[in-house]
Design a protein around this nucleic acid. Structure first.
Lengths: 230, 230
DNA sequence: TTTTTAAAAATGTGATCACATTATGAATTA
DNA sequence: TAATTCATAATGTGATCACATTTTTAAAAA
């Protein structure tokens, strides 16, 4: 199994950030934007070399990510990004929709006009990323948009679950975006914002569900095949 | 902050189990059955002493459990079982019900008569634990019951989420069970089994939702206070 | 040539240590 | 007496190493 040093997208590192936290965040980001191929064994020392650190922080980061189902520790103790099946993909999308619709419902009573303005700002930024065909930024901003909405509820307990789902879908989002183009994202967010302005729960739920299912509905057989063979 | 060595319930350890896995499973079990008080700082070296191991496996176990929201790493880097608020408790229960109802729905098409027999066997064992007032066994068997049902779906993606919710509620289940007695558990499981035998989805969802909400509905103000102050 | 075996290399795990950070206790100051 | 400062102790973090386990490679056997 020959493999060269893995290239992981860089993230910013603050003064106070421990090495462990940096390793975790950088790996997390890499998974979110699909930079690590599923099924290829990752080694602790290899990742440590990529991150220019000793193995200890990498080990702890791997444990954190495995508990979020973003990485899988195989029976032979090797660490991989989990491979995907068609059925599992379908279950994840269904679960994602149910979870995010639930999160939005729990958040709606706490949504302020100011927050809606913020969401609109994020959405405008996303329009720019679309034009610039900056897929990585778009993925992260999309998450900002949704997270900002759901976290309106101060006792929101669902964010870790949603994050876990995103992490599991991340390796496959890249391919999905390549096939669809990226215009669907903008339309649904604007519908979400309209529903929020009028505090219309049922329209909100519909828009979010459509936002999520649009991504899948437009995938042809070829794209799904590519996702499953990646 | 004086503290003595924490007593953690024992679990069995197989030959192949790594020390890290043992530490993780034992801590996980301790959290599930409410053996660790919320808010009290846990130290790596303290837990390592309790588990009779070096700190490394404990550190990795803590990382895993923090990603499952069972433990919280505070700003000062101390590790605690998260304290509970009334609102957060309510959100967790709502989320738990939504999640488990969804899981049951995703599993129902895969449920066999043989599985229902298995669930019935687990339920009989739970009857025995009720009579023996063995709360710890009851908690674990209750989980077996639900997990067995949901995992009928071979592509079930929800189990880690449900596990995370159980881990978050675990420290407070002990108190809840002390206040309610334990008889409600048996009744709803029998309703679940009846719904399964007739493959009645709406009855199944109702029984599961009731199973979960019964636990809370019967808690008086005194019990909730105790949960929040524990 | 293919299969099996053994050795070497790679990789994960647990232990230990030094250092960085945080908490605690004692002494000093207001 | 309460607040502040400083020293000490406790605790988390990262590095390193030896050992256990798994994989790969080379040699031997069929």
């Amino acid at each position: 199994m020959p493999h060269s040093r893995l290239i992981l997208p860089e993230i910013s590192k603050s003064k106070k950030m421990t090495t462990q936290e940096y390793a975790y965040q950088r790996l997390r980001h890499s998974l979110m934007v699909g930079s690590i191929a599923p099924g290829i064994p990752l080694t602790i020392r290899g990742l440590a070399a990529s991150l220019e650190t000793s193995p200890t922080p990498v080990r702890e980061a791997i444990r954190r990510l495995s508990s979020k189902n973003a990485l899988t520790i195989l029976e032979n103790r090797r660490c991989v990004v989990p491979v995907m099946t068609k059925e599992r993909f379908a279950e994840l999308i269904k679960f994602r929709a149910a979870t995010e619709v639930f999160a939005a419902e729990r958040a709606l009573p706490f949504v302020s006009d100011k927050l809606i303005d913020t969401l609109e700002t994020i959405d405008f930024s996303m329009d720019k990323a679309v034009i610039a065909k900056d897929r990585e930024t778009l993925i992260i901003q999309n998450q900002d948009f949704h997270t900002s909405l759901y976290m309106a509820n101060p006792d929101q307990v669902i964010i870790p679950t949603i994050e876990s789902i995103w992490l599991q879908l991340g390796p496959f989002l890249k391919i999905a975006l390549q096939h669809i183009g990226v215009f669907y994202v903008v339309d649904r967010h604007k519908e979400i914002i309209i529903a929020l302005r009028s505090r219309n729960l049922s329209a909100l739920k519909q828009a979010i569900s459509n936002d999520i299912h649009d991504a899948v509905g437009q995938l042809d057989e070829e794209a799904l095949k590519k996702i499953l063979s990646s």
